[in-house]
Simulated assay, not measured.
Amino acid sequence: MFLRRVLATTAAVAISATGLAACSSSDSSDSASGDNPTIKVGTTDASKKAWAAFEDEAKKEGFKVEIQNFSDYTTPNQALDQGALDTNNFQHLKFLSEYNKANGTDLVPIVATEIVPLALFWKDHDSLDGIEGQEIVIPNDSTNQGRAINVLVQADLVKLKKEGLITPAIADIDEGASKVKVTAVDAAQTPAAYGEGTPAIINNSFLDRAGIDPTTSVFQDDPNSEEAEPYINAFVVRAEDATNENITKLAEVWHSDAVQAAVSEDSKGTSVEVERTPEELKAIVDRLTEQL
């Protein structure tokens, strides 16, 4: 099995928050108010075409946008909470809920953007036919493991000991009632498993790096299902800016035709546009926070 050929590794990620404390919590909010505002937006993928399109469309609406790129997934929320940013767009609602819970922050989503489905890939196959009895490799990180297991639940390949878990673990799988064996490995190892013929759930970041066509999946989660709601991506602000009309209007530019065309190109057509009210987004975050 693939697992026997995987060497366990531990990666230490250094996170730099240099300069974040230099701005007070009011600095960015002031610049985002009034006419012709300058709005500072944080992300982790500023090189994508969607961000260039977003800047162009924002200018047409009278906004000056400063996009700041971060190399990790923690610093954009730190920068937002400390006032170095007005908003950020890089995370889904589950990640936001976990961050708020762990750090005692009150960051809130205001405009939904999209869901990027998480998918199962099986080399040289175009369906689930014949997959029963196979070992399936999934990422073992906290962000993707529970979602990956629920993908297999939706595919009717895995049964859980208790239904409805948002973030099930391997221990929650009822192996006797399931049709496949599930093995969790480092996310970076999932493309290698796929290359050796093992069915694997691979997130988009590693698909791109491995040159795997995202449209060749044999199954993916349903972006319209309740199970997918935690993975809605959104523009996020501090609680005091939840009703800031300038920031909200800017965030809504993401749904312009030009930006959506660029998002589709970036994701090779796999991203699904999502529009939810701030109230609906908050309700999802509240539900997730309560379940943590």
Results as ranks from 00 to 15, higher is better:
residue 46 A to I: 01
residue 141 D to I: 01
residue 89 N to L: 13
residue 14 A to M: 13
residue 269 G to N: 03
residue 230 P to C: 04
residue 284 I to F: 08
residue 27 D to W: 11
residue 218 V to C: 09
residue 234 A to E: 13
residue 130 G to Y: 07
residue 128 L to S: 10
residue 137 V to F: 03
residue 112 A to T: 10
residue 153 V to K: 09
residue 208 D to W: 09
residue 144 N to D: 15
residue 108 V to M: 11
residue 144 N to F: 14
residue 270 T to F: 01
residue 28 S to L: 05
residue 41 V to F: 04
residue 97 S to C: 08
residue 35 D to V: 01
residue 94 K to Y: 15
residue 80 L to H: 10
residue 43 T to V: 05
residue 242 A to M: 12
residue 125 H to K: 11
residue 178 S to H: 09
residue 93 L to R: 00
residue 41 V to S: 11
residue 225 S to T: 08
residue 291 Q to M: 12
residue 2 F to S: 11
residue 262 A to W: 05
residue 189 Q to C: 06
residue 29 S to I: 07
residue 285 V to R: 08
residue 6 V to H: 05
residue 234 A to N: 03
residue 152 L to P: 12
residue 100 N to Y: 01
residue 47 S to R: 02
residue 40 K to R: 09
residue 157 L to W: 07
residue 170 I to S: 13
residue 184 A to E: 09
residue 101 K to F: 11
residue 245 E to C: 04
residue 31 S to R: 09
residue 270 T to R: 00
residue 191 P to A: 01
residue 194 Y to T: 02
residue 26 S to I: 11
residue 137 V to M: 04
residue 38 T to Q: 13
residue 272 V to F: 03
residue 100 N to M: 03
residue 131 I to L: 03
residue 233 N to H: 13
residue 13 V to A: 10
residue 108 V to D: 15
residue 249 K to Q: 14
residue 274 V to W: 13
